[in-house]
């Protein structure tokens, strides 16, 4: 269903560094209902993949929708996705629009 989001893009981030290297803000019941990327750290996996940008909103992580999830829950899902050894990448469904 996430793929039906207008103007959304699937970005696969290989785990190329020991950190993911993004900061997010937002989550359900805040002014920013879906997590938005506010920082990309140089040298992190996200920076290395060159496709994630500050300001993008994350709709899904490995096919799991972040809609309705509070900030901490969304952050945990992303942290778990980075930590798991099942995959050597994370798929983000992102949109440029809030």
């Amino acid at each position: 269903p996430g793929l039906l989001e207008p103007m959304s893009t699937l970005v696969r981030v290989p785990k190329s560094a020991s950190t993911l290297g993004i900061a997010i803000e937002g989550g359900a019941n805040t002014r920013q209902p879906l997590p938005r990327i506010v920082t990309i750290q140089r040298g992190g996996s996200a920076h290395n993949c060159r496709q994630l940008k500050v300001g993008q909103v994350i709709l899904e992580v490995n096919g799991i929708s972040l809609r309705g999830r509070e900030h901490r829950e969304a952050a945990c899902l992303i942290a778990e996705a980075f930590k798991t050894k099942e995959k050597d990448y994370i798929d983000f469904l992102i949109t440029e629009f809030n």
């Binding site: 950190t19 993911l20 290297g21 993004i22 900061a23 997010i24 803000e25 937002g26 989550g27 019941n29 805040t30 002014r31 920013q32 506010v38 920082t39 750290q41 900030h71 901490r72 952050a75 992303i78 942290a79 980075f82």
Partner: peptide, 15 residues
Amino acid sequence: REKRLTLPPSEITLL
């Protein structure tokens, strides 16, 4: 719009 303004800001988490 009113409701939106009353929603709190989010914390920021580095991942």
